[in-house]
């Protein structure tokens, strides 16, 4: 018989469930353009002209299909940011990311919505809402066909 003094057990299970998510066509074109040409593509709605990055198959404003892709950025404006001080295990590498690091939400030139991404925080004094920023791409040989082929955004002087 158990007594109240017995410590309950934890049963630990590490679940490793692999998935392969279809990126769909517009996002596949976006990722290939990032990797091969260091270009940022967005979807543009023929009905209401709304420009969305990353590109979608349909417009989030008027619900029409958006077959047209246009190039946006690589410059933009910092809408908000945070310097992150808590450790984070990168789900793609399993490694802990060094802290601190920066996140920003950027309005790319030519876009109507915003792109959340890493922010270079090496010059902390220049971080401000409204600051102009620019995408810095990974070296071509290091690109992995992912949104992280943009290494981060850096503050423009």
């Amino acid at each position: 018989m158990s007594t109240p003094k017995e410590k309950p057990l934890y049963i630990s299970i590490k679940t490793d469930l692999p998935y392969a998510y279809s990126a769909g066509r517009p996002l596949s074109r976006f990722l290939v353009a990032l990797r091969d040409e260091a270009k940022i593509l967005a979807s543009r709605c023929n009905q209401c002209s709304y420009v969305l990055v990353p590109p979608r198959a349909f417009c989030t404003q008027c619900h029409k299909l958006t077959p047209e892709l246009v190039e946006v950025g690589p410059r933009g404006t910092l809408e908000t940011f945070s310097v992150i001080n808590f450790p984070f295990i990168d789900p793609f590498t399993g490694l802990e990311r060094p802290v601190p690091y920066g996140y920003g939400i950027i309005k790319l030139d030519g876009c109507d919505n915003l792109l959340p991404h890493f922010l270079d925080i090496s010059d902390h004094t220049k971080l401000a809402i409204g600051q102009r920023v620019e995408a810095v791409f990974e070296e071509k040989e290091n690109r992995t066909t992912a949104l992280t082929d943009i290494k981060h955004f850096r503050v423009l002087i």
């Binding site: 996002l27 990168d90 789900p91 990311r97 890493f118 992912a146 949104l147 992280t148």
Partner: peptide, 8 residues
Amino acid sequence: PIYQRQLG
């Protein structure tokens, strides 16, 4: 999972 998780 496609366009945001990678950024952590």
